[in-house]
């Protein structure tokens, strides 16, 4: 794989992460525990949609085959999606959605922080923009994790269960494959082993504040980056892509 191909794959994966997170968060619209939180999740979903558009347009441009952001988003099947498994897991209760946000955003903001100096200029520009959103998402979700973890007995138990359940999907975040290795050597993307150290330190700090226990790193599920997904992704894509697939080229 040459460095251009690796960059396309990497940028597409970032777009996939963003759009799948957006789909999951937008499921809270109409179902939020409070109006204000529902708005927040809707806002976050829109932030992610915006980011995925930038990633997909950039990937299409790099590829040079005339594929638009919509083509990449709506006309690929599950095995072409490279989002991590963590993001396609169902929302669960609000605590689980918050736990997922914290686990992912901690990773994502570190990833973006490293990418702002990448020689892939456009990727660096997208990262500089996205990191502001990501920092706020993490702040908001972090407050909630502390509130729920250090809250009532029930909220503590439920959010601890959520962390335990999702933990098995966190290993994949730091698994470097060929794409990550080329990105690291040729495009100054972060070293995932280093990043893992930072991630653990930040998560330790937050879990301590939330009076939650960090689960042991046991067996970790993975495969999402290479298109091996859980059954959940199919349902997300079916819903998201149905309009483009039924009415190809449909537009506002």
């Amino acid at each position: 794989m040459n460095k251009e191909k690796a960059l396309i794959a990497y940028v597409t994966r970032m777009g996939d992460n963003a759009i799948i997170m957006a789909q999951r968060l937008s499921e809270w619209v109409g179902h939020g525990p409070e109006l204000e939180e529902e708005m927040a999740m809707g806002n976050f979903a829109l932030d992610y949609v915006g980011q995925s558009r930038m990633y997909f347009s950039y990937a299409g441009e790099l590829e040079g085959k005339g594929r638009s952001e919509d083509d990449i988003c709506f006309l690929r099947d599950g095995w072409d999606y490279g989002n991590v498994l963590l993001l396609e897991q169902p929302n669960g209760d609000y605590g689980e959605t918050i736990a997922r946000l914290v686990l992912f955003e901690t990773f994502y903001s570190l990833q973006l922080g490293a990418l702002v100096t990448s020689p892939a200029k456009k990727l660096a520009e997208i990262a500089a923009r996205a990191i502001k959103e990501s920092t706020y998402h993490l702040r908001h979700a972090g407050h909630w994790l502390i509130r729920l973890g250090d809250g009532t007995d029930e909220s503590h138990r439920r959010v601890q269960d959520a962390i335990d359940r999702l933990w098995t999907y966190t290993g994949e975040l730091f698994e470097a494959d060929q794409v990550d290795q080329i990105m690291q050597s040729d495009w100054e993307a972060p070293d995932l082993t280093d990043l893992r150290g930072h991630w653990h330190r930040q998560i330790d700090e937050l879990l301590a504040k939330a009076t939650l226990q960090k689960p042991d790193d046991g067996w970790m599920d993975s495969g999402g980056k290479n298109g091996h997904h859980s059954e959940h992704l199919g349902y997300i894509l079916a819903e998201m892509q149905s309009l483009q697939r039924t009415y190809p080229g449909a537009n506002w």
Binding site: E34, R139, H143
Partner: peptide
């Protein structure tokens, strides 16, 4: 105005609803 359970949440909600 907004509803919130505590001070931090109040600030977050104000940001989320009124500075979009």
């Amino acid at each position: 105005s907004i509803h919130a359970a505590d001070k931090t949440m109040a600030l977050d909600h104000a940001r989320d609803l009124y500075t979009r």
